[in-house]
């Protein structure tokens, strides 16, 4: 464990807590894409298949349970909780996210480190996570007003993978044979997808204005 990875995990945890806070306290999911949340459930479900078979550390297992539990409960809230579901704008959140999964599955079957069930599922979860934010970013372009909590949620979610990139660089230089091109490239693509969001988020913060992505 290094500080970059710890910072990444804490930033990821913060993003999930901000979203849960928003949904649980103000009972609103306005501006939040259910499609992205459903993709994240699949990302974690396919990433943590080994949660009961391989034990790395208490921290690792605890964080896996937190990410699994929070992503499932966010989807549950947005789908089945009456008050929250009412604030979900279904008309705008129309990204065909199931079509995102197909290329990820195909790519995982083609490009992976080992052709085993676990490894292919794990690779699939990496590819899917890289593009999981797309429905949310599309929804953001459509809904003009972005409330602070949603903006913070996306900012933290994008930032965590950026810390992971620093972690991969650190591990590359400190651990012999630590080379994982698949993880690195999908992590880089994932972070780059946030580039324009980060730009407008920074501008809104600098000019102290409401965050607005151009149409």
């Amino acid at each position: 464990m290094n500080i970059f990875r710890l910072a990444g995990d804490m930033t990821h945890l913060a993003s999930v807590l901000v979203l849960l806070l928003k949904i649980h306290t103000i009972k609103s999911c306005a501006g939040v894409s259910l499609k992205t949340q459903e993709l994240y459930v699949i990302v974690f479900a396919t990433r943590y298949l080994d949660i009961f078979t391989s034990f790395v550390s208490i921290y690792n297992s605890l964080m896996k349970l937190i990410f699994l539990g929070s992503s499932f409960s966010i989807v549950w809230y947005m789908r089945y909780h009456k008050a929250v579901h009412r604030t979900y704008d279904r008309e705008q959140d129309t990204f065909r996210h199931w079509f995102l999964m197909l290329p990820c599955i195909l790519l995982a079957l083609l490009i992976h480190e080992k052709f085993t069930f676990f490894e292919v599922m794990w690779t699939f979860s990496l590819y899917l996570e890289a593009v999981a934010i797309l429905p949310q970013l599309v929804l953001l372009q459509r809904t003009r007003n972005i409330d602070n909590l949603t903006g913070q949620y996306i900012f933290l979610l994008g930032g965590y993978r950026g810390f992971y990139i620093l972690n991969w660089i650190y591990r590359y230089f400190t651990e012999p044979h630590y080379v994982h091109w698949i993880t690195w490239i999908s992590g880089l693509v994932q972070t780059l997808l946030y580039a324009d969001f980060f730009y407008y988020y920074f501008l809104s913060w600098k000019n102290n204005k409401k965050l607005q992505l151009p149409a």
Binding site: H12, S54, V56, N60, W122, Y164, H177
Partner: peptide, 10 residues
Amino acid sequence: VAPDDVKDEL
């Protein structure tokens, strides 16, 4: 140390 193939990252 976790052997190489064990995923130690989240």
